[in-house]
Computed example of a mutant assay.
Amino acid sequence: MSGIVEGLAKAYVKRWLWKAAAPVAVPVFGVLTLLLIPLAVLAAPEASTASASSSCSIGGTGATVAGTELDAVQMGHAQTIVTVASGDGLDPYAATVALATAYQESRIRMLANDGSSPRLTAEQAAVTATSLNFPHDGLGSDHDSVNTFQQRWIAGWGTVAQLMDPVYAAEAFYRRLIEVPNWQVIPLTEAAQAVQVSAYGSAYARWEPLASELTTMLWPAAQATAADPGGAVAGVCPGLPVASGSWIRPTAGTVTSGFGPRGGTLHAGVDIAGPRDTPVYATADGTVVIAACTSAYCDRDGSLSLTGYGNLVELDHGGGVTTRYAHLSAYTATAGQRVSAGALLGFQGSTGNSTGVHLHLEVRLDGASVDPVPWLADRGVDLQAATIAG
């Protein structure tokens, strides 16, 4: 994996009004302000309950581009594709070719493959189906094709695990694109077809206006990311309206692992799993103590062999009470910052000692971890609920 991967989890759109975390950005880049769709909240500002829209994520809140509606997931993948091109020193045309290709092949979604194609042997089908073990946005069944570009492990694009990494997928596309003679000047559909060798090679041209507008929209953010990939990002998602002094559930999703012994060690918190880049909010008013990568790397998913919390935000609520928000794909807070309950802190991810996308939430009293479920229940917060509520 090349150096562009460095900092990419924190690299989604720096220094626009939202700064980085999002594939779409704000004020300083005027036209992009039109892309922000407010986060839906069900509670009034004075209420202690709030609900977050599932359409809001690190990838943005959706946009209409060249007459085509793209949701937050698609915008997130589009930003990754553009950011990789910028980081690899390629020009915007490379990103345009890649985006047109990805839209034709998958509608810019990370697709897994269940191996059901009759063209696969039983062994090939089994290997292809391992793509289901990785985060994905839907299923495909075309041969052994996977990911946003529908790349094939049998055709030498990489292992299934590599191909299910959005950054690797984009880099693999660009590696082959730059080998195409005169790729910078030949028609887009010819450049894309030379890389993809598709049965429908002329189809890519249809999406050139969409891809060109997307590139224009996302390129400044990609350049800002390449220039400064580290540090906190600023989020697309607004904070939640929560009454001062209230406690809330910090993120949407399902509790998948509770507090207690796990594999001979203490699992010091509770895991709440939702879609990748689901917003994570402050459970209560507090001051940011830590906002940093606490593992050897946080620019991509971690593993059980990696130590640390990955991207971590810790809040001090006073009275000896602190909360920790771990494994974030990116964080939006900075140390020393004062935040209110419902403030955006980051996004669910799988950085650090983790094998799946989730938020690891801890509650600590004078430094000692306690079970967050009953502790927060005493403050009116039901962690077993599927949505954010106080």
Rank of each mutant, 00 (worst) to 15 (best):
A94L: 11
D71C: 08
T278H: 05
R206I: 01
D144N: 02
A126T: 04
V26K: 02
G269Q: 06
S131V: 01
A292M: 02
S53A: 15
R262S: 12
Q79G: 15
V270Y: 02
A252H: 03
L376Q: 08
S305K: 07
P92S: 07
T216C: 00
E213F: 09
C298W: 13
A211V: 08
T256A: 06
L344Q: 00
R176T: 01
L35Q: 05
A385T: 01
Y281N: 00
A98P: 08
P23Y: 12
V127F: 00
G380C: 13
L304H: 09
V197F: 02
S369Y: 08
S257R: 13
A102P: 02
S86Q: 15
L17Q: 08
E69D: 10
Q162N: 13
L210M: 05
S53H: 11
D316P: 05
A44V: 12
I108E: 04
L376S: 04
A282W: 05
L240K: 01
A343L: 04
A335Q: 10
I81R: 01
L328E: 13
A22L: 05
A170Q: 10
D299G: 15
A273L: 08
A20S: 14
T61K: 07
T278S: 14
G286N: 06
D316F: 10
L17N: 11
P38C: 00
C56V: 13
A203T: 07
S329T: 14
V13D: 06
A224C: 01
S48E: 13
A170S: 15
G3H: 11
W157F: 10
L312I: 01
V31G: 07
A94E: 09
D271M: 03
A232H: 04
T307D: 11
S86V: 14
G367V: 02
N182Y: 11
A234C: 05
L90E: 07
V41R: 11
N113Y: 01
S86T: 13
L32I: 00
R262E: 04
G310P: 02
Y281Q: 01
D71F: 05
L139A: 05
S48W: 09
L139Q: 10
S53N: 11
N182L: 11
A155V: 04
A291P: 06
E213G: 06
R379W: 14
P279T: 04
Y281V: 11
R15V: 14
A66H: 11
I388M: 14
V65H: 07
L345S: 10
Y325F: 11
A172I: 12
Q124M: 02
V270D: 01
D285H: 07
V339A: 05
A191V: 07
L111P: 01
G342H: 02
A98Y: 09
T80A: 14
P372W: 10
P209I: 08
P38S: 09
Y12P: 13
A224W: 04
D285E: 09
S369W: 00
F259G: 03
G62I: 12
D142R: 12
A47Y: 14
G239W: 06
I4M: 07
I186C: 05
G274S: 04
V381K: 08
S2Q: 04
L132Q: 03
A203S: 13
T355I: 13
L344I: 12
P372N: 03
S295C: 09
A85Y: 12
V84W: 13
A52H: 10
